[in-house]
Design a protein around this nucleic acid. Sequence first.
DNA 1: ATAAATTTGACCTTTTTTGACCTTTGACGA
DNA 2: TCGTCAAAGGTCAAAAAAGGTCAAATTTAT
Lengths: 149, 149
Amino acid sequence: MNLTKEIAEMIISMLDADNSAEIQRNLLAEQIGCAKSQINYVISSRFTPEHGYIVESHRGGGGYIKITKASENIETLKMHLINSIGSEIGEKTLRANIINLHDRELLTESEAKMILAATSEYAFRQIPIEYRNILRAGVLKQMLLATEK
Amino acid sequence: MNLTKEIAEMIISMLDADNSAEIQRNLLAEQIGCAKSQINYVISSRFTPEHGYIVESHRGGGGYIKITKASENIETLKMHLINSIGSEIGEKTLRANIINLHDRELLTESEAKMILAATSEYAFRQIPIEYRNILRAGVLKQMLLATEK
DNA sequence: ATAAATTTGACCTTTTTTGACCTTTGACGA
DNA sequence: TCGTCAAAGGTCAAAAAAGGTCAAATTTAT
């Protein structure tokens, strides 16, 4: 397991009842024994809006980074995603979005798995790279629509 | 016995109780004393959907290749279909097969719907026609394997 | 003797990790 | 009050750590 995953898990375990955690970057980096900027990397790669998180921070003495798992407008989250999918989407972004929807129980485990399988790089192996993200967007949208009742 | 067989057996012996194994390509290649790309060759020739395997991987520090064998009880009819698909399949044939599997209760209504949505001509509309049937075959195989529990 | 399968090696892409340097903010003394 | 300094956090690019691709060379099967 790499550093990034460890740190991400640590942060998630720090989320309180309000689904938010306030961390001190330098302290956390020191505890873990990594570069300070590693914390920023983890946040920017694992706690994005696609993952369902909002991040705020303050510099200076008494500074902090506050990470909150967003919880409003759950009902419209799926429709919002459908509408916001542009003409292309990468595997990472898609994965983040689907896991987020599953976390919020807007997709069943089975639905999430099928979507990830259908849009995996392996499923698209036979076609040129330049079409893959376009395809992912098209397939994803149709599948999400199919999960609407 | 050739390298490929040895490596394939090694990987199979590494499957755990969940029928999955996480390997480190470079490490494995070094242990065996072969080219790194040999590992890829083994995977792409022996751990295909036709053989009942799902493969995922991650690059970068802490990277890995995860190989999962679809559960034993994947219905033979499904495996038959996966094996009979070949490298291309048209929308009509696919539809007929999915309906058949659904009729036999090997696919839930939801699974069938998602497969049809994901492989519809509409989902592929941005992609040149000559790729569509190839794509359908790839996506269908991955999805069928993902329908097990 | 071909054709198919295997093996290798050179080179590519993605993701993570680190470190040097930058910016913002609060506190404190002149 | 203002200026300066220390305490945070932020940015960016290079290095490192995986895994991926492709085609040529070699071996094995038909």
